[in-house]
Each structure stands twice: as structure tokens, then as C-alpha cells.
Design a binder for these strands. Structure first.
Lengths: 159, 159
DNA sequence: TCGAGTGTTCAGAGATCTGTAAACAGTCTG
DNA sequence: CAGACTGTTTACAGATCTCTGAACACTCGA
């Protein structure tokens, strides 16, 4: 039984490391994956401190980053006075959806350049392609995520 | 005429800053956007040094990161002995396509956890959703990029 | 209102990362 | 082959970032 726990923790740390190399804060990634791979539904800040061997301040900071992104949520704890945290349902879809603003930024950056240089030049054509690509992605990604959601919900009727 | 240059450079730096906050190396981002917003087709390492006010070593390092990702390419320079660099055509599509391996990593991480915990548990259901989502994305992203390419190429017949 | 139990904030230590400058290597020209 | 011209590598310095530990703030129950 503990055996299972160990392997899950290993998997969690491994993924955290990958995410960290991809630009995510290391501690933030560890907190996220700890919640993701936890056998329990929720974890308290104290749990996270103990499991990850980090200070409460670090947990506080990580949580502060994670909640606005929609990856985790604070769960009102009935009996306990401690805050409980939980990995959110559909968190991944939410996360990918939030990349939408990044895509919009790319479109804007391209448009900004085109405004200065026009479309009919070396740089203009380059930026035109960029604008076209990201505008396309922005449109399509939204519908793609919607498609998945519908599909998944249909396959997993709420209890 | 120089006016144009200034505004393009500003746009370049602005985008670089955004990309840097998104996890990309700061200098790497600056080199990339410098090439992206350049009015010329290619730039030499020396050009980049001067424009960005960085050492040749820094340029070398940035280029070393950028080339494998497919964002820029080294162009054989006919007359000059210097290396010329160019922002690659369809670079953005290539970049997004390369996220495929990241998506695969996510699928694997989820599968790894499921192997330890099974699908029928709190963590199992959580990981099942993750696996399903990323597997879906992996499939769809590839086709999406292909669609865009076809569409764009059709609209921009090669000269 | 007081006190215990938690979460948050912040200054400072420690680690990490990144760019520079200089040495080194490679390449083309004369 | 010599010599100049570039690109690459690397030790080191500087800057940045992140965690910790402790003080502080907040909340709830008695």
C-alpha cells in the first residue's frame, strides 16, 4: 500500500522536473504535481510541507501562483481550520484555454509590426504569416477544447 | 525610414520581454525577435551583437538554442565569410508542432501514475482525465497545424 | 476579549543562472 | 602555409531568483 505511494510520488517529482525545465517555477510545479498524484482528494498546506520538505512560506507562494491559473482550488474545510487544496477538475483544459491570451499577444505583436512596416516587404510577409497562424490557432483552439469537454463529459456522466 | 526601424525594434523588444516572462531565455528571445522584426532577410552575428548590445558569446549561445527548435536557420553566405541567420519560414507552425513531445510526456506521466494506482480511485480518475485530454490534444494539434499549412500555402502561391 | 492555531509577508542567505571577456579553434584568402 | 577573420568555448563576475525563518495578521472558539 505504501509501495503505491512511493511510486506515485516518484512520478509526481519526475513530472514536476519536466515542467520546471519548461519554464514553470520548480516549487510551484512540485506542489501542483503533489496534488495531482495524491491519493487523497485534498491536501492541507501542512501535508504539502511535509511531503515536499519545504517551508510553509514556499507553499503559500506556490499556491498563490496556482490558484489564479485555475489549476488548483482552495476547498472550504468543514471540521478543520486548515485550508485544504485540491487539483481542479478539467484543470488541464482550463490551462490550455488560458493560453489564449498568449496567442492574442502574438497576433497583436505581429499586427504592431505590420502597422510600421506594411505587409509588402520582407518583414511584412514574415509578420503576416505570424499573424495569420496565431489568429487561426486562437480560433481553433477554443473550439477544440470545447469539443474535448463535450466528448469527455458524455463519456463520464456525473454520478 | 529610420523611424520605421526604431518602431520595429521597439516591437521586437516588447515581444521578447513577453516571451521571456513565459519561460524563454531572455537573450534567446531577443535574438529571435530581432531576426523576426528585421527589415533585412538575414542578419550576421555581428549585426546581432551591435543591435542588441551583447557579446558574440551570447549570440552564439542563443543561436545554439534557436536552431535546433527550428525557429531560425544558418544561411550559407556567398560572398561573406560570416554566418548569416534567418528567421525560418513556417517557424511558428514548426514550434507549435514540436510541442507534440511535451504533450506526449504528459500522456506518459498520466499513464505511469495509472499503472501504479489503477483507474478506479480518486487519483486514478484524475489521471484518466489528464491522459484523455492530452492524448486528444496530441491527435488534434497535428491535424490542425496541417490544416493551417494547406490553407496558407493555397492563399500564398510561391513566386 | 484573549489565546491558540494557521496563513501570509518580508528581509536576508544561498543557490542558480547568464553574460562577458579572453583564450581557442576553425576556415578561407593571398 | 601564414595570417587574418569569425565562431565557439569557458572561467569568472554579476545579477537574479527562490527558499527559509521569523515576525506579523487573521480567524475562530472559549
Amino acid at each position: 500500500m505504501d509501495e503505491k505511494d512511493v511510486r506515485l510520488r516518484e512520478a509526481a517529482e519526475k513530472l514536476a522536473l519536466t515542467l520546471a525545465q519548461g519554464g514553470m517555477q520548480k516549487t510551484t510545479a512540485r506542489v501542483m504535481t503533489a496534488l495531482l498524484f495524491s491519493q487523497d482528494d485534498t491536501m492541507t498546506a501542512a501535508d504539502l510541507c511535509e511531503v515536499l520538505q519545504i517551508s510553509s512560506g514556499a507553499v503559500s507562494g506556490a499556491v498563490k501562483q496556482l490558484i489564479p491559473t485555475g489549476m488548483i482550488e482552495r476547498v472550504p474545510a468543514p471540521g478543520s481550520r486548515r485550508d485544504h487544496y485540491r487539483f481542479r477538475e478539467h484543470a488541464w483544459a482550463t490551462l490550455m484555454g488560458s493560453q489564449n491570451v498568449l496567442l492574442a499577444t502574438m497576433v497583436d505583436a505581429a499586427a504592431e509590426g505590420i502597422k510600421s512596416a506594411g505587409r509588402d516587404s520582407t518583414v511584412g510577409r514574415r509578420l503576416d504569416e505570424m499573424e495569420d497562424f496565431y489568429a487561426f490557432m486562437q480560433r481553433e483552439m477554443a473550439t477544440l477544447i470545447g469539443t474535448w469537454r463535450k466528448q469527455y463529459d458524455a463519456r463520464h456522466p456525473r454520478a
